[in-house]
Design a protein around this nucleic acid. Sequence first.
DNA 1: TATGAGCGA
Length: 80
Amino acid sequence: MKIFVASLPFEIDDSELKGFFEPFGEVSSAKVIVDKATGRSRGFGFVDMPDEGMAKAAIAQLDGADVDGRTIVVKESEKQ
DNA sequence: TATGAGCGA
């Protein structure tokens, strides 16, 4: 299941993003989107978890979580 | 800060 994560702190990178989801189950991939024109984080990213149940559990636990003083948004991706 | 990038293993 593909997961969309928004409102991420700019300091977050792929490894840290993956670290947030790993406690809930296997994470097949995690990527923080970076503006290739400026090289800065866009403040959102994607995580893919093969197990839907684990993915939904992760979403439920991480959506609205406070990270570095910022409330992140975690939801199922809109696109495949 | 709100839906992507990848050309190599």
